[in-house]
């Protein structure tokens, strides 16, 4: 049993081991499936979450490392799921295609957004097989103005 703070909610989570990656704790145990599995080796970024505000690939982060920290997933971007400026910009510019990578993409973008970036020159390392990158860039810039 570990105590985690996920999207502002403090909760006791029954984990099979303290080494289980945060990705699978979120998905299989807590039931927050917005964070995605893509590669398991910290390359694709589909599992990106914020840990104390910094983007972190959760597939190789043990649950232990999350104890005492603030975890934010895509479900925690906004209370209603639509009102974060990044979410508004993403919808306005119709960024997602299949959408599978977009949770991780949004969390990486969120770290830039929170730092006050206007979006210029940002290069996010997340993979998008659908090729939405051009719109992701535009949406980060748009979000900074919303």
């Amino acid at each position: 049993m570990v105590t985690l703070t996920i999207n502002g909610v403090v909760q006791e989570v029954n984990v099979p081991s303290n080494e289980i990656p945060m990705l699978w704790v979120l998905r299989d145990i807590v039931g927050l499936t917005g964070t995605k599995y893509g590669c398991g080796i910290e390359v694709c970024g589909a599992c990106t979450i914020l840990v104390d505000g910094s983007p972190r690939k959760s597939c190789q982060m043990s649950v232990n490392e999350g104890v005492g920290r603030s975890i934010t997933t895509v479900e925690g971007l906004s209370p209603d799921g639509v009102s974060h400026p990044l979410q508004k910009a993403w919808v306005q510019l119709q960024v997602p295609q299949c959408g599978y990578c977009q949770s991780g993409m949004l969390m990486s973008a969120c770290a830039h957004y929170n730092s006050g970036s206007n979006g210029d020159g940002i290069e996010i390392d997340n993979l998008c097989v659908c090729g939405t990158y051009q719109r992701v860039k535009q949406a980060i810039q748009l979000a900074a103005t919303l």
Binding site: R27, T33, E75, V91, P96, G99
Partner: peptide, 27 residues
């Protein structure tokens, strides 16, 4: 027109196959 699946693909609500969870399910 703005596609109908956009919002759910920005907040974790879009359910992909890998996200399906059933009561009593094993992995």
């Amino acid at each position: 027109l703005v596609r109908l699946d956009m919002a759910d693909k920005t907040n974790g609500r879009a359910i992909y196959g890998i996200d399906v969870r059933l009561p009593g399910m094993v992995y």
